[in-house]
Write a protein that binds this DNA or RNA. Structure first.
Lengths: 341, 341
DNA sequence: CTGTTAGCGCGTTCAT
DNA sequence: ATGAACGCGCTAACAG
């Protein structure tokens, strides 16, 4: 076990018979250092394999070049793609990424925030836990000059940085597509009522049908708690409506798959008697016998990149000259992807 | 923009008219501090909302309570589940997790290692980039007392900590299952030759067939580079063998799906004329019309947890008393999961 | 151009 | 039981 001490600027200074500040400046290519000494310093640093101690620099500069990312769960594909985007942008900007999973537990979320604050992360990117209503633990970070960027699961407040999916636009596109394909009775398979997206979906449903002068039947808007059983029950409602809907817009691919499975068991011909469109979170629809006929792509990787870029911008903007109360609210446009047969 | 300064022990000391060392000790419940002062300190710390500056502590203690995790890609489900396990165990032990994606680029991998070293992470958990052969950039970390735990994509060297999937055992189980189901001609759809797993699969193939006294035909062992086209070409080979194999063991679910798609296009009845077994990396086989009939589950989340636990053990073991050259090599046993129809 | 000095916040001797 | 003083590695005034 080698007890090799890592070289420090002090050591370099000693060997070169110069002061530490000279070494520090030389290493940073400060203009006021003579070319000659600068070269000697660089050379010895090279030889000794000198690497600046980031822990010391973080301490001194009160900047860690680390951003914290808090998400419900890394296992979910949506989030792992998102963090992949976050990390890509961050690393391009020489930032480190610290992760924490809230597991959709508000208490855990608070703990992570506290831990990250103590770690002195430079900023926090977060997708809120499912039931987080109160975001005081995040707004309090403003006092410590730790910027926060919310993404995907964002709070309703306007005075925060956030990037989220344009649920209204995506839904509008999906419904327009279905109507254009001749569907007049369209069912909605929503998530839990509390979800903001459910409300928005219903809202756009009414908007589009009204514009197209189609009859609005709210019994065609049902909810599932996302479990297979609940989805089946919801489908039961939809399929027993008279007349039966000819198309269903489902909250996500998983729900759509469960719904399709159920519809099949009822001997319905998928994408003929009954069409499905859902919001994409699966990469495998192409291997399915009967996939949804289209999906609204939400680009999680892009969302992550965008959130990360906003964070970089905020961190790099001059604290003095910046407008203090300017917040960024980005909507990611979804694209409707038609699945070829 | 509030310029609120974070409270420090110095500040507490000032307000209480005691010395910083007293405060420090009181906060750590050092026995030599009078109960009275200790309480006063704790109370004021509470009031001021004092939080120790981890950046300072990291600097001073030369310990960051942070482990670095380097993986090829966060988007791949296997890895995101693994890191989920890593993070769960780490956070239970009050460790932070810093992530880096190598994107299967060796140079990038080296950069990340360097950056993490400078960050003074306490240890590194890594799944190697696809083509990393030389692991000097990891073994060099021993000089700095930074332990390394490899997982999944591990190096061949024996003198490292590693946790990997028991490919031999899983393959044996899969082949035994096929033989038990009456298959005598079994094809192997291997990955690139360089992959350690491909060699092992072939090895076990020969072992099992020999033991079962079945004819070994190495023309039934083919390779794909994992792309759809390559898989089709490989399937062409397998299907043109005389007699045709009745079962195929594929390197992973994606390849199996491509192979199944192709076999279907050749009008073969899946799981009747031609059975598939593969290694699980997809959660959705249950929604497929014709899934592989069984999968060898590799438990990525468990692998992550195990790797993380090993890291925790290594970090907590007494550096003085520990055997210096004791390395842990854990094999994760796979389970064969039969997919019900 | 270069050196001296003073911290950053904390834990830790060594005194008292 | 408590305080004074030092140093971790580095940057940044301030002095020449």
């Amino acid at each position: 076990m080698s007890e090799k001490k890592l070289p420090t600027i002090k050591e370099i200074a000693r060997q070169l018979n110069v002061s530490v500040s000279t070494v520090s400046r030389a290493l940073h290519n400060h203009p006021s250092i003579g070319l000659r000494t600068r070269m000697r310093v660089h050379q010895l640093a090279e030889e000794l394999n000198y690497e600046p101690n980031q822990a010391a620099i973080s301490f001194k500069q009160r900047r860690t070049y680390t951003i914290g990312v808090i998400l419900p769960n890394l296992k979910e594909q949506f989030f792992s793609e998102a963090i992949s985007g976050i990390e890509d942008i961050a690393s391009q900007n020489k930032y480190n990424v610290l992760i924490g999973q809230s597991h959709d537990d508000v208490e855990r979320e608070k703990q992570i925030v506290a831990a990250m604050k103590n770690q002195r992360v430079d900023g926090i990117i977060v997708s809120l836990a499912k039931h987080t209503k109160n975001i005081d633990h995040f707004t309090a970070l403003k006092k410590y000059d730790i910027p926060v960027v919310f993404f995907d699961r964002v709070p309703a407040q306007p005075n925060v940085n956030k990037v989220s999916f344009d649920m209204r636009g995506g839904t509008r596109e999906a419904l327009d597509y279905l109507v254009a394909n001749g569907h007049k009775r369209i069912g909605i398979l929503n998530g839990p009522e509390e979800m903001k997206s459910s409300k928005e979906r219903t809202e756009i449903y009414m908007e589009v049908l009204q514009k197209r002068r189609l009859k609005i039947d709210l019994s065609l808007v049902v909810s599932t708690d996302l479990t297979k059983e609940s989805t089946r029950a919801a489908m039961d409602q939809l399929l027993s409506a008279k007349p039966r809907p000819t198309a269903i817009l489902a909250i996500n691919d998983w729900v759509a798959l469960d719904a399709i499975q159920y519809a099949k068991s009822q001997h319905l011909k998928i994408n003929e008697e009954l069409c499905f469109v859902s919001y994409a979170n699966l990469p495998i629809t192409s291997y399915l016998e009967t996939p949804p006929m289209a999906s609204v792509e939400q680009y999680p990787y892009e969302q992550g990149k965008t959130a990360s870029q906003i964070m970089m911008d905020v961190l790099n903007q001059d604290k003095e000259t910046a407008e203090p109360e300017l917040y960024i609210n980005t909507l990611i446009k979804g694209g409707l992807v038609i699945h070829e047969k």
